[in-house]
Simulated assay, not measured.
Amino acid sequence: MTIYIPRDVYARARLAFNATRTSESDRTWSQFVEKAIVEEVRRRERLYNAGEAFEGVDAPLSPGRPLSDD
């Protein structure tokens, strides 16, 4: 998985990971990122799908960055 995020967000996430990895029991950076994704997925499931997992066909996402921030 390759993602593109602003440098300041990436730096902030790394700093949070390094500062809390022991107290949060994060074994790896990948585990930290997985936990963050799971929390966002759960939030969207609660907000948009009555707390249920979304259904459908799991298809590849479009690669690349958006052409603008609009």
Rank of each mutant, 00 (worst) to 15 (best):
T2E: 14
Y4S: 15
I5E: 05
I5T: 08
P6W: 00
P6T: 10
R7S: 12
R7A: 14
D8P: 00
Y10I: 04
Y10D: 15
A13I: 02
R14H: 13
A16R: 11
A16I: 05
N18V: 03
N18L: 09
A19F: 01
T20I: 01
R21S: 06
S23N: 10
E24P: 00
E24A: 13
S25A: 14
S25E: 13
W29V: 12
S30P: 01
V33M: 15
V33R: 11
V33T: 11
E34Q: 12
E34M: 07
E34V: 12
I37S: 07
I37N: 04
V38P: 00
V38Q: 12
V38G: 00
E39V: 05
E39S: 13
V41S: 01
V41C: 06
V41Y: 03
V41M: 07
R42S: 10
R42C: 06
R42N: 11
R42F: 02
R43G: 01
R44S: 03
R44M: 10
R44P: 00
E45K: 03
E45H: 13
R46A: 07
R46Y: 04
L47Y: 02
Y48H: 13
Y48P: 00
Y48F: 09
Y48C: 07
A50F: 09
A50D: 15
E52K: 15
A53I: 04
F54I: 06
E55Y: 00
E55P: 00
G56Q: 02
G56L: 02
V57E: 13
A59Q: 12
A59Y: 03
P60Q: 09
S62R: 12
S62I: 09
P63M: 06
P63F: 01
G64I: 05
G64K: 05
L67R: 12
L67Q: 13
L67S: 14
S68W: 05
S68V: 00
S68E: 11
D69G: 08
D70E: 13
D70V: 08
